[in-house]
Computed example of a mutant assay.
Amino acid sequence: MSALTDDSRCPCGLGEPYGVCCGRFHRGAATAPTAELLMRSRFSAFAVGDTAYLTKTWHPKTRPAGLALDPGQRWTFLEILGKTGGGLLEIEGTVEFRAHYRQDRRPGSMHENSRFVRIDGQWIYVASAD
């Protein structure tokens, strides 16, 4: 996990400062307007260790009872590989991504095609669409 300031580059990969990018979602000052931005903000939450945000943006039917992040795993960058739906006027979408990390000084990555739904105007992560 890393400590970021609002002026740090956001881990999500958009190149914006954390405070005006994913940090505003993590603080609750705004909600992600698209499924892709929710995916990016969730990646950033993993990078900064924000389990409260991850839990809040996880569908209650698929959310784990507890969420403990591995302190030895450092999420390094995110690649968006594709997406379907998930736009401003839609209620469902998928985002395919590859999330890169380092663990025990070794690089690794995970690939997923995530499914998102919008409930009461808020995008939430449901589960892997694979």
Rank of each mutant, 00 (worst) to 15 (best):
A65N: 10
G86I: 03
T62P: 06
K83Y: 04
G87F: 08
G108H: 11
E96F: 07
A68F: 05
A99G: 14
E96R: 15
L67S: 05
G66E: 15
F77L: 06
I80Y: 06
E92K: 08
I91K: 13
L78K: 04
Y101Q: 04
Q73F: 07
D104Y: 06
D70M: 01
A99I: 08
G66M: 07
E90R: 07
G66Y: 09
P71E: 04
V95A: 09
R74T: 02
A68H: 12
W75L: 05
H100V: 00
P64K: 06
L69V: 01
Q103M: 12
R102T: 14
G85V: 09
L67Q: 05
I91N: 12
T62G: 08
G108F: 10
M110N: 08
F97R: 02
R98E: 15
L78R: 01
D104E: 15
A65G: 14
A99C: 09
D104W: 02
M110T: 11
T62Q: 11
L69E: 00
Q103S: 11
L67K: 03
R63N: 10
H111P: 03
T94C: 13
R63D: 11
Q103I: 08
A68L: 11
E96T: 15
K83P: 06
F77R: 12
R105D: 15
Q103H: 14
L88V: 13
E96V: 10
A65V: 11
T84P: 10
E96M: 14
D104P: 06
R102W: 01
G66W: 02
H100M: 02
I91F: 09
G85M: 04
G108R: 12
H111C: 12
R63C: 12
H100P: 08
E112S: 12
D70I: 00
A68K: 10
G82D: 12
G66N: 10
P107V: 05
H100Q: 10
R98S: 11
G72D: 14
R63K: 14
T94G: 13
R74D: 06
F77I: 00
L88E: 13
P71M: 02
I91Q: 14
P71S: 03
I91V: 14
P107E: 12
H100N: 14
W75E: 02
H100T: 08
T84C: 09
G66D: 12
E79Q: 11
R74C: 05
G72S: 10
E112C: 06
G82P: 09
L89E: 14
M110C: 04
R102N: 09
F77N: 04
D70F: 01
